[in-house]
Design a protein around this nucleic acid. Structure first.
Lengths: 193, 193
DNA sequence: CACCTATTTCGATTAAAATCTAATTAGAAT
DNA sequence: ATTCTAATTAGATTTTAATCGAAATAGGTG
């Protein structure tokens, strides 16, 4: 979803997120009405109604035709139904996200917990720890079997608490270990496949 | 549509009529996120995100579960799709109008142009004139044929400009007249049937 | 052309929402 | 127990939107 489409959707909601504009649509669904009629029915002054109608017309939710010097407004029900199609499927919703840099989060964690290749601390929160573990697991090659000593050696280059990090790898299913023995290997990340 | 339903619909639109809340829904459609993650992704402070999430949760558009001391939010896509069903059919739109007193307009015209049974003036605008003509046509019985003299007599009880009003009845198809002769009769109002 | 009526535009005021900082709560880790 | 972290709540500020009165526009009428 492009930035323009996102803004269009947002404007649609903004337009309908008002009590009196919603009522106007309801009234016009029944029959066409002049500005003065609407202002009487809604108990608003004409300039206010005119303001609301301008917003509705901008999105083509209503249309107007001139009769004498009164402006008669009516509902554009096609535009309204059109707006309604396939709007809230999970797929459409996910498309809203394209405007957001999804890396920002990881960058913040890196900045907070890394000093170059040095891990300053092990994040306490699960989501943060996950980011760091994903970074650290890349120091291991896929398909290679490492002894516990080798694993410790690689981790130690980045942080002294080798035991905790090694255990985290196992718990997060990022590594597996041979049943009785001391051999470890990296597991492919399912979320990347 | 009841007043509560109307307010519920309005709240739904208000909830989605905000750039950051819309983005939140998009982000959560992809995966669950903590408040802090969202605040980084959206470039907002945590309290602001918390505020938005509270509004979304109130309408059950998102749901939360606790993990340690982080709160993980995810999209409630069922609720979202539910909201989307049959919302903007013309029938639903017309139902919005139930809250509005549709008589207000006619009352205003009566007050402005009638003095008891006396018509103070003939409205210039079409919509206003229509209201007065509908009131005046009720002075005639359906199924009765009137001579021009009789028509004039009845109209004259309410306003002196008999010719104009008689002509208006014909133009608005509220009365018909015998081709060559001077007999008039009231036509049933299609909009009432 | 002068006048009347309906609508729109303009500017100002008021009301509502979003956002932030600071303080509070709740849970986890040391 | 004390400290730390994440989230929420409270209060204040800023931003945005709604509403109105006054003035301008435009079309119709005498």
């Amino acid at each position: 979803m492009s930035e323009e489409e996102f803004q269009a959707l947002l404007n649609f909601f903004k337009c309908l997120a008002n009590e009196n504009r919603l009522k106007i649509l309801g009234i016009l669904a029944d029959q066409e009405r002049s500005v003065e009629e609407l202002s009487v029915l809604l108990n608003l002054k004409a300039p206010t109604v005119s303001h609301h109608l301008a917003k509705l017309k901008e999105l083509e939710l209503v249309q107007m035709h001139v009769d004498g010097n009164t402006h008669l407004y009516h509902l554009n029900s096609k535009a309204l139904e059109q707006m309604n199609k396939d709007r809230f499927t999970p797929r459409q919703m996910a498309a809203l996200t394209e405007n957001v840099s999804s890396d920002a989060w990881e960058h913040k964690i890196f900045k907070a917990f890394l000093d170059g290749e040095q891990l300053k601390a092990i994040p306490a929160g699960r989501k943060k720890r996950e980011v760091i573990l994903k970074w650290l697991i890349n120091k291991f090659d896929i398909g290679v079997k490492y002894s516990e000593k080798e694993v410790n050696g690689i981790i130690a280059k980045h942080h002294p608490d080798v035991a905790t990090l090694r255990r985290e790898f196992i718990m997060n299913k990022m590594m597996e270990r041979e049943d009785g023995g001391g051999l470890y290997w990296r597991v492919e990340d399912k979320s990347i496949i």
